[in-house]
Protein backbone atom coordinates (compact mmCIF):
# COMPACT_ATOMS: atom_id res chain seq x y z
CA UNK A 1 0.00 0.00 0.00
CA UNK A 2 2.73 2.43 1.03
CA UNK A 3 4.90 1.29 -1.86
CA UNK A 4 1.95 1.91 -4.17
CA UNK A 5 1.57 5.44 -2.86
CA UNK A 6 5.27 6.13 -3.33
CA UNK A 7 5.04 4.87 -6.90
CA UNK A 8 2.02 7.12 -7.50
CA UNK A 9 3.84 10.11 -6.03
CA UNK A 10 6.82 9.54 -8.32
CA UNK A 11 4.54 10.31 -11.26
CA UNK A 12 4.68 14.13 -11.27
CA UNK A 13 1.66 14.57 -13.53
CA UNK A 14 -0.51 12.32 -11.38
CA UNK A 15 0.59 14.24 -8.31
CA UNK A 16 -0.37 17.52 -10.04
CA UNK A 17 -3.77 16.02 -10.89
CA UNK A 18 -4.26 14.97 -7.29
CA UNK A 19 -3.47 18.51 -6.05
CA UNK A 20 -5.99 19.99 -8.51
CA UNK A 21 -8.64 17.50 -7.39
CA UNK A 22 -7.90 18.32 -3.78
CA UNK A 23 -8.50 22.03 -4.49
CA UNK A 24 -11.80 21.19 -6.20
CA UNK A 25 -12.78 19.17 -3.13
CA UNK A 26 -11.92 22.13 -0.90
CA UNK A 27 -14.23 24.22 -3.11
CA UNK A 28 -16.99 21.63 -2.78
CA UNK A 29 -16.77 21.61 1.01
CA UNK A 30 -16.26 25.33 1.51
CA UNK A 31 -18.86 26.65 -0.95
CA UNK A 32 -21.60 27.35 1.66
CA UNK A 33 -19.03 28.91 4.04
CA UNK A 34 -17.48 31.24 1.48
CA UNK A 35 -20.79 32.09 -0.20
CA UNK A 36 -23.60 31.68 2.34
CA UNK A 37 -26.16 33.09 -0.11
CA UNK A 38 -27.98 31.20 -2.83
CA UNK A 39 -25.80 31.39 -5.98
CA UNK A 40 -28.93 32.32 -7.98
CA UNK A 41 -29.37 35.47 -5.87
CA UNK A 42 -28.73 38.81 -7.58
CA UNK A 43 -25.94 40.45 -5.61
CA UNK A 44 -24.84 43.49 -7.59
CA UNK A 45 -24.85 45.31 -10.92
CA UNK A 46 -24.83 43.00 -13.96
CA UNK A 47 -21.71 42.44 -16.09
CA UNK A 48 -19.13 43.70 -13.60
CA UNK A 49 -15.64 42.67 -14.75
CA UNK A 50 -13.52 40.46 -12.49
CA UNK A 51 -11.25 41.96 -9.84
CA UNK A 52 -13.80 44.55 -8.64
CA UNK A 53 -16.22 43.96 -5.81
CA UNK A 54 -16.59 40.38 -7.03
CA UNK A 55 -13.52 38.22 -7.59
CA UNK A 56 -14.66 36.76 -10.92
CA UNK A 57 -17.21 39.44 -11.79
CA UNK A 58 -21.00 39.15 -12.22
CA UNK A 59 -23.15 37.77 -15.01
CA UNK A 60 -25.92 39.30 -17.13
CA UNK A 61 -28.38 39.24 -14.23
CA UNK A 62 -25.92 40.41 -11.55
CA UNK A 63 -25.15 37.01 -10.02
CA UNK A 64 -21.68 36.34 -8.56
CA UNK A 65 -19.71 34.14 -11.02
CA UNK A 66 -17.34 32.93 -8.28
CA UNK A 67 -20.26 31.75 -6.13
CA UNK A 68 -21.70 30.03 -9.21
CA UNK A 69 -18.45 28.19 -9.82
CA UNK A 70 -18.18 27.15 -6.15
CA UNK A 71 -21.71 25.72 -6.11
CA UNK A 72 -21.29 24.34 -9.61
CA UNK A 73 -18.35 22.24 -8.39
CA UNK A 74 -20.77 20.49 -6.03
CA UNK A 75 -23.10 19.62 -8.89
CA UNK A 76 -20.27 18.42 -11.09
CA UNK A 77 -18.78 16.24 -8.38
CA UNK A 78 -22.14 14.90 -7.21
CA UNK A 79 -23.21 13.92 -10.70
CA UNK A 80 -19.75 12.81 -11.81
CA UNK A 81 -19.27 10.52 -8.82
CA UNK A 82 -22.76 9.06 -8.56
CA UNK A 83 -23.07 8.48 -12.31
CA UNK A 84 -19.69 6.74 -12.33
CA UNK A 85 -20.56 4.58 -9.32
CA UNK A 86 -23.84 3.60 -10.94
CA UNK A 87 -22.04 2.83 -14.21
CA UNK A 88 -19.48 0.67 -12.40
CA UNK A 89 -22.28 -1.16 -10.58
CA UNK A 90 -24.16 -1.93 -13.78
CA UNK A 91 -20.93 -2.74 -15.60
CA UNK A 92 -19.80 -5.22 -12.95
CA UNK A 93 -23.21 -6.86 -12.87
CA UNK A 94 -23.54 -7.28 -16.62
CA UNK A 95 -19.89 -8.02 -17.33
CA UNK A 96 -19.57 -10.30 -14.32
CA UNK A 97 -22.59 -12.41 -15.20
CA UNK A 98 -21.49 -12.62 -18.83
CA UNK A 99 -17.90 -13.49 -17.96
CA UNK A 100 -18.76 -16.04 -15.26
CA UNK A 101 -21.58 -17.95 -16.89
CA UNK A 102 -20.43 -17.60 -20.52
CA UNK A 103 -22.50 -19.37 -23.17
CA UNK A 104 -25.87 -17.95 -24.22
CA UNK A 105 -26.07 -15.51 -21.31
CA UNK A 106 -22.80 -13.97 -22.40
CA UNK A 107 -23.93 -13.81 -26.00
CA UNK A 108 -27.09 -11.88 -25.13
CA UNK A 109 -25.52 -9.55 -22.56
CA UNK A 110 -22.54 -8.63 -24.71
CA UNK A 111 -24.76 -7.90 -27.72
CA UNK A 112 -26.82 -5.55 -25.53
CA UNK A 113 -23.59 -3.91 -24.38
CA UNK A 114 -22.46 -3.43 -27.96
CA UNK A 115 -25.87 -2.02 -28.83
CA UNK A 116 -25.31 0.73 -26.27
CA UNK A 117 -21.81 1.35 -27.56
CA UNK A 118 -22.94 1.88 -31.13
CA UNK A 119 -25.14 4.88 -30.23
CA UNK A 120 -23.15 8.11 -29.78
CA UNK A 121 -22.97 8.58 -26.01
CA UNK A 122 -23.91 12.23 -25.86
CA UNK A 123 -26.90 11.91 -28.17
CA UNK A 124 -28.22 9.01 -26.09
CA UNK A 125 -27.71 11.03 -22.88
CA UNK A 126 -29.64 13.97 -24.37
CA UNK A 127 -32.42 11.61 -25.39
CA UNK A 128 -32.72 10.05 -21.96
CA UNK A 129 -32.77 13.40 -20.12
CA UNK A 130 -35.31 14.76 -22.57
CA UNK A 131 -37.55 11.79 -21.94
CA UNK A 132 -37.14 11.83 -18.16
CA UNK A 133 -37.40 15.67 -17.82
CA UNK A 134 -34.32 17.66 -16.79
CA UNK A 135 -33.30 17.09 -13.17
CA UNK A 136 -30.21 15.91 -11.26
CA UNK A 137 -31.42 12.28 -10.93
CA UNK A 138 -32.25 12.02 -14.62
CA UNK A 139 -28.82 13.44 -15.51
CA UNK A 140 -27.22 10.77 -13.33
CA UNK A 141 -29.32 8.06 -14.95
CA UNK A 142 -28.50 9.33 -18.44
CA UNK A 143 -24.76 9.51 -17.81
CA UNK A 144 -24.64 6.12 -16.11
CA UNK A 145 -26.61 4.62 -19.00
CA UNK A 146 -24.02 5.74 -21.54
CA UNK A 147 -20.93 4.92 -19.42
CA UNK A 148 -21.42 1.33 -18.26
CA UNK A 149 -20.61 -0.61 -21.45
CA UNK A 150 -16.87 0.05 -21.15
CA UNK A 151 -16.81 -1.30 -17.59
CA UNK A 152 -18.93 -4.29 -18.55
CA UNK A 153 -16.53 -5.29 -21.30
CA UNK A 154 -13.55 -4.85 -19.01
CA UNK A 155 -15.08 -6.95 -16.21
CA UNK A 156 -16.15 -9.64 -18.64
CA UNK A 157 -12.62 -9.89 -20.01
CA UNK A 158 -11.08 -10.10 -16.54
CA UNK A 159 -13.59 -12.71 -15.38
CA UNK A 160 -12.98 -14.86 -18.43
CA UNK A 161 -9.22 -14.68 -17.86
CA UNK A 162 -9.48 -15.40 -14.13
CA UNK A 163 -12.10 -18.12 -14.59
CA UNK A 164 -9.53 -20.49 -16.03
CA UNK A 165 -7.12 -20.04 -13.13
CA UNK A 166 -6.71 -22.94 -10.78
CA UNK A 167 -7.63 -21.06 -7.63
CA UNK A 168 -11.12 -20.55 -9.00
CA UNK A 169 -11.38 -24.27 -9.78
CA UNK A 170 -10.03 -25.07 -6.32
CA UNK A 171 -12.74 -22.95 -4.80
CA UNK A 172 -15.44 -24.66 -6.85
CA UNK A 173 -13.97 -27.94 -5.67
CA UNK A 174 -14.46 -26.86 -2.07
CA UNK A 175 -18.16 -26.53 -2.83
CA UNK A 176 -18.35 -22.73 -2.94
CA UNK A 177 -21.45 -21.12 -4.40
CA UNK A 178 -21.27 -18.97 -7.53
CA UNK A 179 -21.88 -15.82 -5.49
CA UNK A 180 -19.00 -16.67 -3.16
CA UNK A 181 -16.63 -17.28 -6.05
CA UNK A 182 -17.68 -14.07 -7.76
CA UNK A 183 -17.57 -11.78 -4.76
CA UNK A 184 -14.79 -13.31 -2.66
CA UNK A 185 -12.37 -14.34 -5.39
CA UNK A 186 -13.05 -12.93 -8.84
CA UNK A 187 -14.07 -9.35 -8.02
CA UNK A 188 -11.21 -8.55 -5.61
CA UNK A 189 -8.77 -9.80 -8.22
CA UNK A 190 -10.08 -7.53 -10.97
CA UNK A 191 -10.60 -4.47 -8.77
CA UNK A 192 -7.37 -2.66 -9.80
CA UNK A 193 -8.29 -2.23 -13.47
CA UNK A 194 -11.87 -1.33 -12.51
CA UNK A 195 -10.61 1.43 -10.22
CA UNK A 196 -8.25 2.74 -12.87
CA UNK A 197 -10.85 2.81 -15.65
CA UNK A 198 -13.60 4.00 -13.30
CA UNK A 199 -11.61 7.03 -12.21
CA UNK A 200 -11.22 8.04 -15.86
CA UNK A 201 -15.00 7.72 -16.26
CA UNK A 202 -15.54 10.50 -13.69
CA UNK A 203 -13.91 12.96 -16.08
CA UNK A 204 -16.16 11.92 -18.94
CA UNK A 205 -19.20 12.12 -16.68
CA UNK A 206 -18.36 15.71 -15.66
CA UNK A 207 -17.98 16.67 -19.31
CA UNK A 208 -21.32 15.14 -20.28
CA UNK A 209 -23.00 16.88 -17.35
CA UNK A 210 -21.58 20.26 -18.40
CA UNK A 211 -22.70 19.59 -21.96
CA UNK A 212 -26.23 18.72 -20.88
CA UNK A 213 -26.46 21.80 -18.66
CA UNK A 214 -25.14 23.95 -21.51
CA UNK A 215 -27.94 22.70 -23.74
CA UNK A 216 -30.45 23.58 -21.03
CA UNK A 217 -31.04 19.95 -20.09
CA UNK A 218 -29.63 20.35 -16.58
CA UNK A 219 -31.73 20.92 -13.51
CA UNK A 220 -32.76 24.63 -13.85
CA UNK A 221 -32.77 25.04 -10.06
CA UNK A 222 -29.26 23.71 -9.48
CA UNK A 223 -26.20 25.82 -10.23
CA UNK A 224 -23.81 24.12 -12.62
CA UNK A 225 -20.77 25.03 -14.69
CA UNK A 226 -22.49 24.23 -17.94
CA UNK A 227 -25.40 26.46 -16.96
CA UNK A 228 -23.12 29.48 -16.32
CA UNK A 229 -21.36 28.99 -19.65
CA UNK A 230 -24.70 28.72 -21.36
CA UNK A 231 -25.81 32.00 -19.78
CA UNK A 232 -22.57 33.77 -20.69
CA UNK A 233 -22.50 32.48 -24.25
CA UNK A 234 -24.70 35.31 -25.62
CA UNK A 235 -22.47 38.04 -24.20
CA UNK A 236 -19.12 36.35 -24.80
CA UNK A 237 -17.67 39.40 -26.58
CA UNK A 238 -18.81 41.98 -24.04
CA UNK A 239 -18.28 39.89 -20.86
CA UNK A 240 -15.70 37.15 -21.57
CA UNK A 241 -15.31 36.22 -17.90
CA UNK A 242 -18.76 34.68 -17.50
CA UNK A 243 -18.08 31.76 -19.84
CA UNK A 244 -14.31 31.60 -19.41
CA UNK A 245 -13.94 30.89 -15.68
CA UNK A 246 -16.35 27.96 -15.48
CA UNK A 247 -14.72 26.68 -18.66
CA UNK A 248 -11.33 26.74 -16.95
CA UNK A 249 -12.87 25.01 -13.93
CA UNK A 250 -14.14 22.17 -16.17
CA UNK A 251 -10.81 21.91 -17.95
CA UNK A 252 -8.78 21.70 -14.75
CA UNK A 253 -11.11 19.25 -13.03
CA UNK A 254 -11.31 16.84 -15.95
CA UNK A 255 -7.58 17.13 -16.51
CA UNK A 256 -6.98 16.39 -12.82
CA UNK A 257 -9.30 13.39 -12.89
CA UNK A 258 -7.63 11.98 -15.99
CA UNK A 259 -4.11 12.46 -14.66
CA UNK A 260 -5.01 10.75 -11.38
CA UNK A 261 -6.77 7.98 -13.31
CA UNK A 262 -3.71 7.39 -15.49
CA UNK A 263 -1.50 7.42 -12.40
CA UNK A 264 -3.72 4.87 -10.63
CA UNK A 265 -3.76 2.71 -13.74
CA UNK A 266 0.01 2.68 -13.79
CA UNK A 267 0.31 1.84 -10.08
CA UNK A 268 -2.32 -0.88 -10.19
CA UNK A 269 -1.25 -2.49 -13.43
CA UNK A 270 1.71 -4.76 -12.73
CA UNK A 271 2.67 -4.82 -16.39
CA UNK A 272 3.36 -1.07 -16.39
CA UNK A 273 4.99 -1.08 -12.98
CA UNK A 274 8.60 -1.34 -13.98
CA UNK A 275 8.64 1.43 -16.52
Amino acid sequence: MRAGFARFARNRLALFGAVVLLLVLVLVVSAPLAYPNNPFQLVGKPLQPPGGAFLLGTDTLGRDVAAGIAYGSRTSMLIGLSATLAAIGIGILVGGIAGYYRGRVELVLMRVTEFFQTIPAFVLAILIVAVLSPSVPSEIIAIAAVSWPGIARLVRGEFVALGGREFVLACAGLGASDLRIIFRHLLPNCLPPIIAVGSLLIGTAILIEAGLAFLGLGDPNVMSWGLIISAGRAVLRQAWWIATFPGIAILLTVLGVNLVGDGLGEVLNPRLRNR
Binding site: E166, F167, L169, A170, L174, G175, A176, R184, H185, N189
Partner: peptide, 28 residues
Protein backbone atom coordinates in the same frame (compact mmCIF):
# COMPACT_ATOMS: atom_id res chain seq x y z
CA UNK B 1 -10.51 -32.86 -2.60
CA UNK B 2 -7.95 -31.86 -5.16
CA UNK B 3 -4.34 -30.65 -5.11
CA UNK B 4 -3.44 -28.68 -8.21
CA UNK B 5 -0.38 -28.54 -10.41
CA UNK B 6 0.43 -24.86 -10.59
CA UNK B 7 1.61 -23.58 -7.20
CA UNK B 8 1.35 -20.02 -8.51
CA UNK B 9 -2.12 -20.13 -10.01
CA UNK B 10 -3.93 -22.31 -7.51
CA UNK B 11 -3.97 -19.87 -4.57
CA UNK B 12 -6.01 -16.66 -4.59
CA UNK B 13 -3.39 -13.87 -4.63
CA UNK B 14 -5.64 -11.53 -2.63
CA UNK B 15 -6.38 -13.77 0.33
CA UNK B 16 -4.34 -14.49 3.42
CA UNK B 17 -3.15 -18.05 3.82
CA UNK B 18 -5.37 -18.65 6.84
CA UNK B 19 -8.45 -17.60 4.86
CA UNK B 20 -7.47 -19.78 1.92
CA UNK B 21 -7.23 -22.87 4.13
CA UNK B 22 -10.28 -22.07 6.27
CA UNK B 23 -12.53 -21.35 3.30
CA UNK B 24 -13.66 -24.94 2.73
CA UNK B 25 -14.83 -25.58 6.32
CA UNK B 26 -16.50 -22.15 6.44
CA UNK B 27 -18.42 -22.93 3.25
CA UNK B 28 -19.58 -26.17 4.83
Amino acid sequence: QMVFQDPYGSLDPRQRVVDIIAEGPIIH
